[in-house]
Simulated scan of single mutants.
Amino acid sequence: MDVLINAFVGLHIVGIAALLGGFLSQMKQMSAGTARMTPGMLHGALTMLVTGVALVGLNQADGGAVNNIKIGVKLALLIVVLCLVYVKRDEEKVESAAFGAVGALTTVNIFIAVLWT
């Protein structure tokens, strides 16, 4: 079971990298107002959602304790990010506030995962 959980953690990190990497690669375009939501950002957010839900289920099945409040906060942030990326995915230019919110909420989600014990 540990190997399976670790595999899903790795996939979860790949999703974070795709989402945050898409954001960070367009920081210059964001300041110019020409940033856009890339397909990789959408796929990264979806990967995070699927693997996160799987990790909660696997941890509970393994008998581990899950902090439901922490998971709920992380899920709420991820749903907001996913909605922003999904709704804005076809636009040629995304306003800086929406694009910045995706990066900020993703970063907050990372820090919640690492620091909230």
Rank of each mutant, 00 (worst) to 15 (best):
L55M: 03
I79D: 01
V114H: 01
K74N: 07
A18K: 02
G103I: 00
G33I: 11
L82G: 11
S96N: 15
I69L: 12
T117Q: 15
A65C: 05
A35K: 12
K28G: 09
G21N: 09
G44L: 05
I5M: 07
R89E: 04
L42I: 10
F111R: 04
G21Y: 07
L19M: 04
L55I: 04
L58D: 02
L75G: 06
G15D: 06
W116C: 07
T107E: 00
D62K: 14
A32R: 12
G10L: 07
M30K: 12
A65P: 12
T34I: 13
A104S: 07
V80Y: 11
G52R: 01
W116L: 08
L55P: 07
V53C: 03
G22P: 04
V81S: 02
Q26C: 03
N6K: 15
T107N: 07
Y86D: 13
L58Y: 10
Q26W: 03
T107S: 14
G64F: 15
V66L: 01
V94H: 04
L11T: 05
H12V: 01
A18H: 03
L20S: 02
I16C: 06
Q29P: 07
I13A: 09
A45K: 06
H12T: 06
A54Q: 04
E92W: 13
M48F: 03
T106A: 12
P39A: 01
N68M: 14
A61F: 13
K28Y: 07
A35T: 09
V14Q: 00
E95M: 02
G40F: 11
G72D: 09
F23V: 14
L84M: 09
L42W: 06
C83H: 14
A76L: 11
I71K: 12
A45P: 02
K88M: 08
M27F: 14
L42F: 08
L82K: 06
L84S: 10
V80K: 02
G15C: 05
F8V: 04
A97Y: 09
Q26N: 09
L46F: 13
N109R: 01
V114W: 07
V3F: 12
L58E: 05
G100N: 02
V53P: 00
W116P: 03
I79S: 02
V9I: 15
G40M: 04
G57D: 03
G10C: 01
K88S: 12
G64Q: 15
A18W: 12
G15P: 07
G10V: 09
A32H: 13
A104T: 13
G40K: 10
L55W: 02
I79K: 02
V85R: 01
I69T: 15
G10T: 13
I112E: 03
A17E: 10
V85E: 06
S96G: 15
I5L: 11
